[in-house]
Simulated scan of single mutants.
Amino acid sequence: MWRHIASNALTMLIVAIFLLGGLILWGQTEYSAEGPLEEQICLRVERGSNVNRVSKTLEDQGAITSGMLLRVGMDYADLTGDLKAGSYLVPAKSTMKDIADIITRGGASTCGTEIVYRIGVTQLSNLVRELDPATSTYIEKAKFDPAAEEAPAEYLDVRDRADTRFRIAVAEGVTSWQIVEGLKRISLLDGDVSEVPAEGSLAPQSYEVKKGDKREELLAEMAERQDSILAEAWENRVEGLPVNSPEEALILASLIEKETGVAEERRQVASVFVNRLRLGMKLQTDPAVIYGITLGQGVLGRGLRRSELRAATPYNTYVIDALTPTPIANPGRASIEAALDPDSTDYIFFVADGTGGHAFAVTLAEHNANVARWRQIEAERAAD
């Protein structure tokens, strides 16, 4: 009888082992299988949260089929203690294994709320926006000028949250002085700036930052990016340009940047300046004259006077018949590329056309007609 009992027990043990093996195999397969999520979501992991709470949230949002299986899988992979606070974009059909990696990998949040400090030509503005995971686009929640307005509740509510991302967006055409002054006013950053970087040497782009980042280090990153952009554009420049060095190309790019805000016009404006340089003509560009007055420290805020257009300064392109001695702003990639690969035209004149763009001309007669139309537009606007 004992032999019979032992035989049955052994059989049951073998069956149990097979069942356990099958369960483990099923669990491994399910853990790595495509998930049920139909559309990507933004998962927020609170500071001090745990895997139990996160797995329940994922279950409620339909991202996983079993919170218990996620917890077991993370425990088996020794990931339970690696949970990181933040907001994370979970793509549709993500596996539990993928999700476990997303919430334990660390690094910057990939969705949720973002505060953007924008350094513009005329002001510094703060923008609060939130990513809509369904469309992968940001929705503006608040925008204000910190120099003139009180910070709204939408900004104060998220400024100190652990999962809020921070970004500094530098507009094309700002001066190095404006960038430094803007960085000084962003309390998120730390450290002093010993000197204003050379004009034109900073890349006007978007930079992700975090609390405590050093201002000097951020300026160094901007300079490194601009060096890289300029080197690439110089390597790909067209033949026969009247610029003899990357430094001269940067000066020309800054003039193009300040003359037009219309992306499609940059290469046309570049062609006018290139044609004038080839002909030995004066560039006659107002932004350069303005820079000679302000030296990039703020906005002139008024029209140019006749005396200023006649004054003999290194930046008065109505007097000098060459490029200015330095850039007059920090040009973006598009203007640098336009300076080194302009359109092939015969244009040597342009004037505003009333739409935000310019009217281009080959002859002085054509240009005078364009100027007359612009004066009429100005008069009509003044009357209105």
Results as ranks from 00 to 15, higher is better:
I377Y: 15
Q297W: 05
R165N: 10
A233V: 01
S245K: 06
F273V: 10
G303F: 07
E172W: 00
T110C: 02
G212D: 13
E308K: 04
R105F: 00
P325C: 13
V269I: 13
A270N: 03
A311F: 08
E181C: 04
L127H: 14
E257A: 00
R215E: 13
L309W: 12
G73W: 02
L19E: 01
A33C: 02
G296D: 01
S254Y: 10
G292K: 09
G86S: 09
P331T: 03
G73V: 05
Q268N: 06
T80K: 04
G354K: 11
I179E: 09
L202T: 05
L230E: 12
D60R: 14
G107Y: 08
I229M: 04
L37Y: 10
S49P: 09
G21K: 10
T345W: 03
G107H: 05
P287R: 14
T363V: 04
A148P: 07
L124H: 06
V319L: 05
A233G: 04
Q40L: 03
Y117D: 02
K214N: 14
A359M: 11
R225G: 04
K97E: 11
I139V: 15
A33I: 01
R278N: 13
L156E: 14
D82Y: 04
M96A: 09
I186L: 05
T355N: 12
L323H: 10
I256P: 00
S55Y: 09
A151M: 08
E199F: 08
L13D: 05
T175A: 07
F360L: 13
L218P: 03
A334T: 13
K141T: 03
A312D: 15
Y315D: 01
D82L: 07
E216V: 04
T317D: 09
Y207E: 10
